[in-house]
Design a protein around this nucleic acid. Structure first.
Lengths: 123, 123, 123, 123
DNA sequence: GTGGTCTAGACCACG
DNA sequence: GTGGTCTAGACCACC
């Protein structure tokens, strides 16, 4: 479920955070579903439990999961969170597009990209 | 011309690199144009000259500028470099679009974004 | 009567203790009134009976309830306990007010707060 | 400047956070002032640098300080932050007052408390 | 068993 | 010298 890319320059805990965020927002992990325990995941990924702990804490702070002492960590999906996240992504996309424009990339190339990505849905 | 954002978590030298790269690729800095000297820029931004030096070295390594001993650093724009950069950006865009799709963002919203950005060109 | 808030970071048993303390001190639960049995409450809240037991034990130790073997747990309201509790709350309030002052909050704002809260009594 | 209370049940890092928050919001630490370095403070308080680091990270996340790699941590006071914090405190106060009311504490006692606290200002 | 905190000590990137 | 990340191993409270 989770893969660590050691060639990635970002810290491990951040990779884990992003991965879970995606799994939750894309619906792979359902609401209230239990996440692997701190220790179990640490062993599975052969990394230190502290690193997992840190990732989970951050995810809880962001409202993606809910951690209950003695019980575990649970997915905490709520609509408003998804909306916030989506608008954040669109904002990022705009910045990116602006940069593409500045670099002289043509609209048609962008549109091809979009088509290509979203046609995969119909497959 | 160059602004440092201390709230930005990226290292200063990287901010400078990205800024120059953009200025060059977007055509604001013309081919063979002289860049500010290491010392002058360091004073202007009130940062360590080593940091500027590091940015310039990296830019030279990437082929964006050309450093001439005793004379200064000069923009070194060449076509193939631009093409490489453009294809890199499109690749990044694809990754981003894929993520948008996973998060349930609609194609129409993306298309609106694209239109919005590129209509600014005609203004 | 009792609600558990899993997003609350305090342990469950403490939430239960506080809730009962409030119910007793505010007079909702009358003197000598019988509390729900450990097992019944555990089932109702779908939590471990041990947790309820721990809360009841603590409440007994503090003198708020009285546990009678084979019969159940009963509210044990006595005047001195209320006075102790009230002075503790006033002490807490003072600490809080001190902090408000340090943060530059004006007296008038505090007074408005007080009025607002206690006017509700007359409704 | 910072004192750790080991009898306090809250974690050390939280005590440090709260202390700095107060020092900043009450104006003892001025804007852009440099905080003690992670290691220096750790030695001074004879605790682990990681614990200080955690406190500083949290303070940065909350927007109270700004940490710059290789330079240090700096106070980052902005008005909106203070307003948010003040309204948060008033909200807390309301909750507290509500509880006092429920426990049968008289308005006059509260008002005495308020007077007592704010008269100290004129001393 | 679970999560949460802390220590000790190491390594890295940055300025 | 600065902050940031990670590991190893420990202890605690909770359920």
């Amino acid at each position: 479920m989770i893969v660590i890319d050691y060639s990635d320059k970002r810290p491990i805990y951040e990779q884990i955070i992003e991965r879970f965020r995606n799994l939750i927002l894309s619906g792979v992990l359902e609401d209230n579903e239990k996440l692997p325990s701190v220790r179990a995941l640490a062993i599975e990924l052969s990394i230190n439990p502290n690193t997992i702990q840190r990732a989970y804490s951050e995810l809880e702070r962001e409202g993606f999961i809910c951690s209950v002492k003695g019980k575990g960590n649970f997915v905490n999906l709520n609509k408003s969170l998804m909306e916030v996240e989506q608008s954040r992504m669109l904002q990022e996309l705009k910045t990116h597009l602006k940069k593409c424009k500045d670099f002289g990339i043509d609209v048609s190339q962008i549109e091809d990209c979009v088509k290509e990505t979203f046609e995969e849905v119909t497959r």
